[in-house]
Design a protein around this nucleic acid. Structure first.
Lengths: 146, 146
DNA sequence: TCTATTTCGGAGTAATTTGTCCGAATAATA
DNA sequence: TATTATTCGGACAAATTACTCCGAAATAGA
């Protein structure tokens, strides 16, 4: 799998949040019900994102989570690395340590290109753009089509 | 991680084998020592590859494993799917079931392209070509440079 | 102040992946 | 035939990931 489950949930939840364009905080339980994601697990994911400074949170009634900055200033790369770390974008496909231009594995060149493309895709895609896409093209984030 | 550990080992072992261009069978213990991979675990990986019909094996003295057909007729895709399955090439990045052109997730188009590229890379790369590359460019498969 | 609602943090459980061990089956060779 | 080298298969152990539970802290509102 490219993304861990935690990261899948994180992407979906944050995209959902961005598409809501809410005034204030949205509770995690609301999001988890909407997207059919375990509340307890999603809470952990959001904790990672708030600790990474991408989200803010507020406890108590009418509390919840919110984007820490404008949706246009948060990229998929931000979310990805906060949850799954940066390894995908520098690691060797064969798991060899120190694989690089100096001592490359047989797949180094090709994989460098692919992972560079993925990095570029994640880095250049921000939540605002995706939220707009979702409205325009009726993209979905839910497991069932309903 | 893109590849499971089992698949990383499988790639490395099979590439090593192809670059050896041996007469007959090569024992798994030889390969495991050469590449610094646990013998017991590598044995399991080769069992998957022989069960998939990509390798043949022979027990007893001078036994071991060998490619089941010419190196030019085995692709990285063959190895990959035998070990990690086909999911990477059709699955949704967000893990949504039934994500497709009819009911796409917000990342469906971009991810379809990327995974298609990966599929193309794996499918079009055969072991003979890689073995040749390894000789010409002195690529490495070992963890330490020695 | 009391109560209800929410996130936080830590501990625990379940499932999957990774890795080990051992005995049985197979085959070459002396 | 006996010995040795090898893969095969199943059970097991360890590590990581996925997921749950619960009590504490914060905070809004009656």
């Amino acid at each position: 799998m490219l993304l861990s489950k935690a990261c899948e949930y994180g992407f979906r939840a944050v995209l959902h949040l961005a598409s809501l364009q809410p005034d204030g905080y949205v509770s995690i339980s609301t999001i988890s019900k909407e997207l059919n994601i375990s509340f307890a697990f999603l809470t952990k994911v959001f904790q990672q994102l708030t600790q990474a400074g991408l989200m803010t949170s507020h406890r108590g009634p009418n509390g919840g989570v919110a984007l820490a900055r404008s949706a246009s200033e948060i990229s998929l790369l931000d979310i990805y690395t906060a949850i799954d770390g940066p390894k995908l974008f520098y690691g060797c496909m064969l798991g060899l340590p120190n694989c690089g231009d100096a001592a490359p594995c047989p797949l180094h060149d090709q994989w460098s290109q692919e992972r560079g493309r993925l990095h570029q895709l994640f880095a250049s895609t921000d939540l605002e753009a995706l939220a707009n896409d979702m409205e325009r093209f009726n993209f979905r984030l839910k497991t069932a089509s309903e």
